[in-house]
Measured scan of single mutants.
Amino acid sequence: MLYRITVRNADGEKLEIVVEMSEDEVRALAEELRKAGYEVRVEPIPEGEEP
């Protein structure tokens, strides 16, 4: 499935990426980023919607 991941650092800089991963993989990635001090938001992209 496609997911949009938005990551912000302490300075407020934002990075937005689209990935194709399983829900478990995305959850693990988000958890690791949060542990590293980043603010993370994950949104699933519905099938048929443009990323």
Rank of each mutant, 00 (worst) to 15 (best):
D11I: 12
K14V: 11
S22D: 06
G48Q: 15
E43N: 07
Y3W: 04
E25N: 10
E47R: 10
G37L: 01
P46Q: 10
E32F: 07
P51C: 15
L29S: 02
E16D: 10
V26P: 00
V40E: 00
S22G: 12
V42F: 08
A28P: 02
K35F: 05
R8F: 10
V42N: 00
L33N: 01
V18R: 11
E31K: 05
G12F: 07
E47Q: 08
E43G: 03
P51D: 11
I45E: 10
D24S: 13
A10D: 03
Y38D: 03
E49K: 03
V40Q: 00
Y3F: 07
R41D: 07
M21K: 09
A30C: 02
E13C: 15
I5S: 00
A28V: 09
Y3H: 04
R41F: 14
M1V: 13
E23Y: 07
T6M: 13
P44C: 04
Y3S: 01
L33F: 15
R8M: 11
P44I: 10
E13N: 15
E23W: 10
E32N: 12
V26L: 05
M21T: 07
D24I: 07
K14D: 06
V7L: 14
E23V: 14
K35N: 05
V26G: 01
V40H: 00
E49H: 09
V19Y: 05
A30F: 06
D24F: 12
G12H: 10
R8L: 07
A30P: 00
S22W: 13
R27V: 11
A10K: 11
I5V: 13
Y38L: 08
L29H: 13
G48S: 15
L33D: 00
I17R: 10
R41G: 11
L33Q: 01
A30M: 09
E47F: 11
E20Y: 09
V19M: 07
R27A: 09
E32R: 15
V18D: 03
D11V: 13
I17L: 10
L15R: 15
E47V: 09
L15A: 07
A36Y: 04
E49Y: 12
D11S: 15
V40S: 01
I5M: 07
M21I: 05
A10C: 02
E31L: 06
G37C: 01
G37R: 02
S22M: 09
E39C: 03
V18I: 06
A10Y: 05
L2R: 14
I17V: 03
L29Q: 03
G48C: 05
A36M: 09
V18A: 04
L33V: 02
E32L: 06
V26S: 04
R41V: 11
I5W: 01
E20H: 06
R8T: 14
E31W: 07
E32W: 03
I45L: 11
N9W: 08
D11E: 06
V18Q: 14
L2K: 11
R41Q: 10
V26M: 12
V40A: 03
V7Q: 02
K35I: 11
E25Q: 08
E23K: 10
E43F: 05
L29D: 00
K14T: 09
E49V: 10
N9Y: 04
R8Y: 09
D24L: 14
R41E: 08
V18K: 08
D11N: 15
N9E: 02
E32I: 11
K14E: 12
E31R: 04
E16G: 03
M21P: 00
L29F: 15
K35C: 01
V26T: 03
V42K: 00
K35D: 02
K35Y: 04
R41C: 02
K14H: 08
E25P: 01
A30Q: 05
